[in-house]
């Protein structure tokens, strides 16, 4: 079964790297969707069916679509091709490599992380549901509140200011898709 693991790993990491380095923004968003799909496959391999499907539903069905919409709405008048990376890119890359190195070092030197055999854990829908309604009912309500707040907030932020001079066409498109994402999580 290691083969499956490595295939998914290559898919996910390649998608992530492409999403971070391609020139065209829409390509980045599509590669991001591939990376999200790979993560969902990881969750399925780890016996977390519900989370895997929720990942596809939320990230590919909503977040990726939202990003694509944002990219199209902010295209417009880009000036001549600019450098892709900011001027301080060596520092950023160095920090990222440092973080990766230290994380791998910590994982390799830990005794907990070397576990081979896993107990056959299963998160059935029934367990998740009853846990959501008993132990985790407060976080659930908070999430509902947060999503409602985010929904209203996103609409207000993206709503056209009365005196703003951007074209009405764009705003019509902006106000339609943005509220939909938090709504879907209910």
């Amino acid at each position: 079964m290691e083969v499956v693991f490595f295939i998914i790993t290559v898919l996910t990491l390649a998608g992530a790297i492409a999403a971070m380095s391609l020139r065209h923004l829409v390509h980045c968003a599509l590669c991001l969707a591939v990376a999200f799909g790979g993560l969902a496959a990881f969750y399925l391999q780890l016996n977390a069916q519900f989370i895997g499907f929720a990942q596809i539903l939320v990230y590919i069905g909503a977040v990726a679509v939202l990003i694509v919409f944002a990219i199209l709405l902010t295209r417009g008048i880009e000036s001549a091709p600019q450098p892709l990376f900011s001027s301080a890119w060596p520092v950023g890359l160095g920090v990222a490599l440092l973080v990766f190195g230290s994380l791998v070092f910590a994982i390799q030197s830990s005794s907990v992380a070397q576990q081979q055999a896993a107990p056959s854990a299963q998160a059935t829908i029934r367990t998740i549901g009853s846990q959501l309604m008993t132990n985790f009912v407060l976080p659930l309500e908070l999430i509902a509140l947060l999503l409602t707040a985010a929904l209203i907030g996103a609409v207000i932020i993206a709503m056209q200011e009365p005196s703003a001079k951007s074209t009405p066409m764009k705003d019509h498109a902006a106000s339609a898709p943005i509220p939909s994402v938090p709504e879907e999580q209910r």
């Binding site: 947060l146 985010a150 996103a154 932020i157 943005i178």
Partner: peptide
């Protein structure tokens, strides 16, 4: 995942 969705919506807005 729920919070990330909210974050994405507000961030993009």
């Amino acid at each position: 995942i729920g919070i990330a969705a909210a974050e994405a919506a507000v961030g993009l807005a």
